[in-house]
């Protein structure tokens, strides 16, 4: 019973980074899902898709490889226990740009968060449950960027668990509420810190240039340039780190 329950939790939980794009509205940037075994994993790994259809701010960026023929579309992790540790996690964790198996569900979730709810981006949590979307715990945040609408970009981290009973969901919420929020908060403050460093650096570089300034009131639309999170944070491994952190979170909850 307990085993199937754990499976139930892990297979139905996932963590999403979503973004409200200036051009495209609510978009998923990265989703980390759990697979039981290699067969399950196959269905979560993505085939090649044209990245051109995504603007820079909606796109997940994998670490670069020299071989231009390599088309990275997924990341996967596995904990490999060495030694006497009995914490054996055999699950596989896969991060992708979108979910092939939960496409509609995911778009329904982020649509609700970004457009139906009155979303706060001050890192105060929103949690909702319904039969369609299951349990979702989300934390919104924004990053300063002069090239975006309103000079800020809005993001949201979401932990979801679907397809299980409300009872189980509320049990998860009760046990892991503090963990999920603390781990999200940790991540968000780190991202903001990185962003602040980048901004400070740019300000320093452009100090002597009167033509370049950060942000401007009533700027024309033509200057709204999509920017990727790797660029905003100045960290080319950003999505890999996020994947690893999501893996850590899911492995501890499931």
């Amino acid at each position: 019973m307990m085993h199937s329950l754990t499976e139930d939790i892990s297979l139905n939980s996932f963590i999403t980074l979503a973004h409200f794009c200036d051009k495209h509205g609510p978009k998923v940037i990265q989703i980390t899902q759990v697979a039981r075994n290699n067969n399950d994993m196959e269905s979560l790994l993505l085939p090649d898709y044209p990245t051109d259809s995504y603007c820079d701010s909606c796109l997940i960026k994998f670490p670069e490889v020299k071989d231009k023929n390599v088309k990275l579309r997924s990341m996967k992790s596995k904990f490999e226990s060495t030694g006497s540790d009995n914490h054996e996690d055999t699950h596989l964790y896969i991060s992708t740009q979108y979910s092939a198996t939960r496409f509609q569900l995911l778009s329904s979730i982020i649509k609700k968060i970004f457009s139906e709810e009155t979303m706060l981006y001050n890192e105060s949590p929103l949690c909702f449950y319904d039969n369609e979307r299951g349990l979702n715990i989300s934390l919104g945040f924004k990053l300063q960027d002069g090239h975006s609408r309103g000079n800020e970009r809005r993001y949201c981290l979401i932990f979801s668990i679907t397809n299980t009973s409300q009872k189980l969901c509320s049990d998860i919420m009760n046990r892991h509420w503090d963990f999920i929020l603390t781990a999200f908060n940790k991540e968000v403050s780190y991202i903001k810190e990185l962003r602040k460093k980048v901004i400070d650096k740019q300000l320093n570089e452009n100090r002597d240039n009167p033509l370049i300034s950060m942000g401007s009131y009533l700027r024309g639309n033509s200057l709204k340039i999509p920017k990727n999170l790797t660029e905003l944070t100045g960290d080319r491994l950003f999505f890999m780190k996020l994947h690893k952190w999501n893996t850590y979170m899911l492995s501890n909850i499931c």
Binding site: L45, L46, F62, P63, L72, R73, M240, H243, K244
Partner: peptide, 17 residues
């Protein structure tokens, strides 16, 4: 990098070490 197959594209294996 794990090379892609018929069903999926290339995958980056992120070791958790």
């Amino acid at each position: 990098v794990i090379p892609g197959t018929d069903t999926h594209s290339d995958v980056l294996d992120v070791s958790m070490y």
